[in-house]
Design a protein around this nucleic acid. Structure first.
Lengths: 156, 156
DNA sequence: ACGAGATTGAAACATTATAACGTTTCCAGG
DNA sequence: CCTGGAAACGTTATAATGTTTCAATCTCGT
């Protein structure tokens, strides 16, 4: 994420937390910044490594606690299929997200497609199932990678 | 899964593998049986414990290899959000599945809702994304648990 | 300032998954 | 039969991910 966009995202996050009475402490803010600065999803231990760069020795719970907070606040998302985390691209918009995860370059597109959400809700309700936490992740090849590389079955 | 249904499922699996030239070895069959006998999804190490019951000392790769085979053949599914595995309820039907996972009782409903799949495909294609492996899991409360228990905000 | 509750630090531990290497089993072709 | 290559399996070790626990510290309303 570019510097200005990053600053904007962090400001939005701070505003949201203030408004909700949640505390975006320096540590949590730092984790959010690391997440948003990076295009790819990051594993908890990758985040930990970056947090430690100021030579401080931090333990895993530090990161997981910050992540828990960010997830609760909708400022970050967990990608279950990747065991990794990513900064939310549309913080504040209360929505259900779907993720398109490129298996080649690792980049992630975050959608909130109402049609998908509705269909899922319908399918669940039809079985008397009350969905609380949807996990919708499509692993595949993004447009950039598809055009940049030969098809998997291409000779040569 | 009931005994007869289990036997039928294992026969179907064997037939499918034979037809494909894949080898459903005793070990793989045993893992499939363990998976199908159980209502809930099982973690790899839970399967391992059951495999070991005949006092043999097996190591994790044994289970993971059997699971890889079963996943490839569409005889089992991995539930990413649970780090667990479940026997396929409709082996042979080439389909994309969605899973409704009850957070209370742990039971799983496997769907293959065409409407959901199509909507997802559309959303992906609109971004030039070619989906290869969909992960669609809804965590929530199943009908049985919802009726059996008081609402979460119910006093008493 | 004070105390309740939230946050953080730190060590140990638990769980899930894979790497690496060698051995056995299967089976098609000679 | 028998044998050579591939697939399956066994075993040890280790990587990667996530949690429990307890103590120390900070924050904020009163």
């Amino acid at each position: 994420m570019a510097a200005e966009a990053l600053a904007r995202t962090l400001d939005t996050a701070a505003a949201l937390c203030a408004q909700r009475g949640a505390r975006l402490t320096p540590q949590r803010r730092r984790v959010l910044e690391i997440l948003c600065r990076t295009e790819r999803p990051l594993g908890a231990y990758e985040i930990l490594d970056q947090l430690r760069e100021g030579s401080r020795a931090l333990a895993p719970p530090t990161v997981y606690r910050a992540l828990d907070f960010l997830l609760e606040q909708g400022l970050a998302h967990r990608l279950e299929s990747q065991h990794a985390f990513i900064g939310c691209r549309h913080p504040g918009c209360a929505h259900q997200s779907q993720f398109l995860i490129c298996a080649r370059c690792g980049r992630v597109i975050e959608l909130s497609d109402a049609g998908v959400s509705e269909r899922l809700a319908m399918a669940a309700r039809a079985r008397g199932f009350e969905a609380e936490r949807p996990v919708v992740e499509l692993i595949g090849i993004c447009a950039g990678c598809a055009s940049a590389e030969p098809a998997p079955d291409c000779p040569s």
